[in-house]
Design a protein around this nucleic acid. Structure first.
Lengths: 340, 340
DNA sequence: TTATGTTAGGCAAACGGTTGCGCAACACGG
DNA sequence: CCGTGTTGCGCAACCGTTTGCCTAACATAA
């Protein structure tokens, strides 16, 4: 059906090998033969067959990702789109495509990966997240298949990761509140078993400690990365008689919930409570009170992950285990000092 | 490196063909041979090589999409993530993976598609959008390569599409405002050259006409699918001395801009102006005033597109040219009648 | 017994490329 | 004139599966 290397060869009066060598710019082919063949390839719209190439080269020139399953959450969606953009941009630049698959259950997920890995449908895999003792990581390590993890895992310290320095980021965010004059600062966290929650909590404590500010456990609330959690956290704080004057919130979406809770009882941000949070989803800017947020460079996480994975695949040995994407404080209205 | 069909054959004392036939459940293989071989495959973790399969079957069992380039816009991000979820869910169910690529320019984009199509890296393509006289569509038609378009194209009437009935949707939205008692209804549109803008404009006019309501051209503003456009539209309306009391807005993000403009001058939604818009991005619910919006079933668009494409690939001829995904009015605070 | 089926599975070509090795043709130094 | 290089390209094997055709072994019918 399609035009093959043999068609070209026949027309040019050479052997298929010669055509192949022209394609790979093999120097042992004379300039004129090469040019003649190139012209013919052009005329016939020749495009090499990927399967055939793959079969002999044992590479697919595709990178794989597993679509996160519980994608109901808004943040996941926004994160996902951005990180994909980063991944695919870099991958395409290097001549790789991005292959996505999914599974509706844990076992289906691992089956899907097995298929990609053992069936050589991809040359490497980017993990968008990890769970505690993630079986995917175990599997990939056992197969010694190239992969990188976005985020970091405490269970598998030797995995190659691309991550933010969440401890530092949270330290910076807290510091910002301190510099605005706040002394009583609370923290709304995410699921305690996620590394990212732990890291951000740590940075928060570090800053408080450094400035000798009160670290009260009733100023810390744990929850999900959901609006609801923010709302609930707020009602918890309201029941206290000594309340924080500022909050570090683990995620922008949660902040939305906090603000909703505040608004309902007539409190205002930042006048009654200053807030800074994380992830800087596009939404943060659009809130009724624009939210100060730590931009974690989602696009870059993807971009660097892709870059790193390609290095591993091409066996450039230089890679550090842990790659850090810098964060940036986006200061908006929600954290600006109310006192002037 | 990996275990191949030959390894299995050797261990089982049969020929590779037999193993192949076991895999494809060929009835000419005895139950016992078949079982013996299956056990060995299990033990050796056999997984068929995709490239080899592809080469002989001339199919890749992958679907392709082109990542939209100017993905800076929030709506695009949210749309993108949802539609992908839909596509990949259905595709995976049918044993297909999803391949993504991109290009940084028009020509790169078409080169990328050429590579996928002629190089047989995918079996079909889903177009996430189309431009006027989209060269991609021309190309795919010329190659008679299976593809479906999400949205619809006026330039290529015979393309197979998955779309909403935007005229009806907009009619419904406008009707909702009318039933709330509004007589003076404006429209904030998107880029006039997009089919979706045109369709929604049409439905708006249709409803007004049917109810003999004023159709004033100064109550219509065109813009982008961006917050800014909403903001600008608002200042335009404010300069009028006869203003609409309600607005149909082409996209939720634009509505955010409208509301911002309104808030700045102390107006409130829906008290001073009722609004209903389109797309129902997750954000709409989170706005300071939750936004009424027409849910267009983004996930379903992807899901149906995938399903339809697979039908085309498998040459099930039943397909209609145009597949409509139903919409749903999500009525929230922003459009609730102010008069009681 | 022989002709005819049926069953279970092997042989080898094919899919479309890549690549190690060989070889002819020519150049050139000694 | 011969030996040694160099240049330019072809031969054929190979990557891992699939599949049309063939055949050995056995069963069955006449």
């Amino acid at each position: 059906m399609s035009v093959t290397i043999k068609d070209i060869a026949k027309l040019a009066g050479v052997s298929p090998s010669t055509v192949s060598r022209v394609i790979s710019n093999n120097p042992r082919i004379s300039k004129e033969t090469s040019n003649k063949i190139k012209v013919i390839m052009e005329q016939l719209n020749y495009q090499p067959n990927n399967a055939a190439k793959s079969l002999v080269s044992r590479t697919s020139h595709s990178l794989g990702i597993i679509l996160p399953r519980p994608a109901e959450e808004l943040f996941l969606n926004l994160f996902f789109a951005e990180v994909i953009r980063g991944i695919v941009t870099q991958a395409t630049k290097a001549g790789y495509d991005l292959l996505m698959t999914t599974g509706t259950s844990d076992t289906e997920e691992i089956e899907a990966v097995t298929r990609l890995v053992r069936g050589r449908k991809v040359d490497g895999i980017i993990l968008l997240h990890s769970r505690r003792n993630d079986p995917l990581i175990s599997f990939l390590q056992k197969e010694s298949f190239p992969f990188v993890l976005i985020g970091r895992s405490k269970d598998f310290p030797d995995v190659i990761t691309v991550d933010n320095d969440n401890v530092q980021a949270s330290y910076d965010a807290t510091l910002h509140l301190i510099l605005q004059g706040h002394q009583r600062i609370g923290f709304v966290s995410g699921p305690p078993n996620l590394v990212v929650s732990q890291d951000r909590m740590e940075g928060y404590h570090k800053a408080l400690q450094e400035f000798n500010l009160p670290q009260r456990s009733d100023w810390i609330v744990e929850g999900e990365f959901l609006q609801e959690s923010g709302y609930r956290a707020m009602s918890f704080f309201m029941a206290l008689h000594e309340r924080p004057t500022a909050l570090v919130v683990v995620d922008d979406l949660v902040t939305f919930g906090v603000i909703r809770g505040l608004t309902e009882i007539g409190y205002r941000v930042p006048h009654d409570l200053s807030i800074i949070s994380f992830n800087n989803i596009a939404l943060s800017e659009l809130a009724s009170t624009p939210i100060s947020s730590v931009d974690i460079g989602i696009y870059q996480l993807g971009y660097i992950a892709s870059l790193t994975l390609l290095r591993i695949i091409n066996e450039e040995t230089i890679h550090q285990r842990r790659n850090i994407v810098p964060h940036r404080l986006m200061i908006r209205e929600s954290s600006l000092s109310a006192k002037e």
